[in-house]
Computed example of a mutant assay.
Amino acid sequence: MTGSARTTSDDRGVGGRRSGRAALATEAYVAHRNLLFTVAYEMLGSAADAEDVLQETWLRWATVDLDAVRDQRAYLVRITTRQALDRLRALGRRKETYVGPWLPEPLLTAPDVATDIELAEHVSMAMLLVLETLAPIERAVFVLREVFALDYEEIAEAVERTPAAVRQLAYRARAHVAARRPRGTASPADTRTAVTAFQRAVTTGDLQPLLDVLAPDVVFLGDGGGLARAALAPVVGADAVAAVLAAGLGNLRARAMELVQVNGYPGLVLRLDGQIDTVLAVHLDDGLITGLYSVRNPQKLSGLRRSTTLRR
């Protein structure tokens, strides 16, 4: 009887310690969750896949001996990076059969993202499309170094390479991105002006104010994923983009439009019968629209119920 009572007491002690460790693990994970989501989203360009990566990160983190962890933030970033790399390689195979242009899954971002100019630029549609042209390992190194300012030793642990190899990967990735990145960073105010011109053109039927801010080499990309009507190839040049916009004016007018923050910059959400039908983002260079990005794939719009907080 006495032995039985002593065993129960011991069990309570073990259970209490486990409960305490679980609480500490949860507290650390929650404290860094927005950062981890931002790492995963930057690497994947997909909020849904980033959330899946965070689930995997939590499952692995919950089994870690916290006493052996020197830097919880770095350890969590390491887990997230490795999971995101695995998923990024799988996504590459999926994109090979994607119908039409692929665009990142848009985020409705919290207002404070726009105040971090560097972060807003890195999560913009234009920059995420540039990152898509990197190899998975290069993308991981670029994101961890350029966006989150991790040192080479930390990155080396996350991507399972030597610091010397990481330096070479970072150099190559920077050069690759520099050759392809958007020419300039537009201010939120200029972007808002361009988005408002689009909104006014749809509302009034007068396209001229919008055409006045289209760059000669503007590119329009529409992502329907084979599930919604969209251009199956990039539309290039002001005249061609103007023709597409003019042809779709009637359909656009039937949709309610709301000015929102999309990936750190002003953009538009278009609703049909109360449901999100399209998210429109733009990129500007020297005050002119060089990129118009229309996401209509319903699988990429289902999570747009609230704004997302991103952190570095």
Rank of each mutant, 00 (worst) to 15 (best):
A242E: 09
G3T: 13
P216I: 07
A114S: 04
L59G: 07
A47I: 09
Q55I: 07
F37R: 05
A23R: 15
A281C: 00
M257L: 15
T2M: 11
A238Y: 02
G287E: 02
D71K: 01
R200E: 06
D286G: 10
W58Y: 12
Q168I: 07
L221W: 02
S46N: 11
G13V: 15
I137T: 10
V282T: 15
N297C: 08
A5P: 04
R181D: 13
L129N: 08
Q208P: 04
G287C: 03
G226T: 13
T38W: 02
G205E: 05
Q261N: 13
L227T: 10
R139Q: 09
R94N: 01
W61D: 12
V53I: 15
M127S: 05
V159G: 02
V113F: 03
A164F: 01
R192P: 09
H32I: 12
A31R: 12
H122F: 05
T26P: 05
D116Y: 11
T26C: 07
L129V: 14
S302R: 06
L36P: 02
D151L: 07
A194D: 06
P209G: 08
T133M: 09
S4Y: 04
T185V: 14
V159P: 08
V77C: 00
V166K: 06
A240F: 05
A48Y: 00
Y152N: 13
R87N: 04
A22R: 07
I137N: 03
R18E: 11
V147P: 11
Q261A: 06
V113Q: 04
T38R: 00
H32D: 12
D71R: 01
V143Q: 02
T278V: 14
E42H: 00
L119A: 15
R183S: 10
Q199K: 05
Y171A: 10
A164W: 01
Y75L: 08
E154F: 01
D285H: 02
R181C: 12
T204D: 04
S19M: 03
V295A: 11
P104D: 01
Y98W: 06
R192Q: 08
Q199E: 13
P266C: 03
G264K: 03
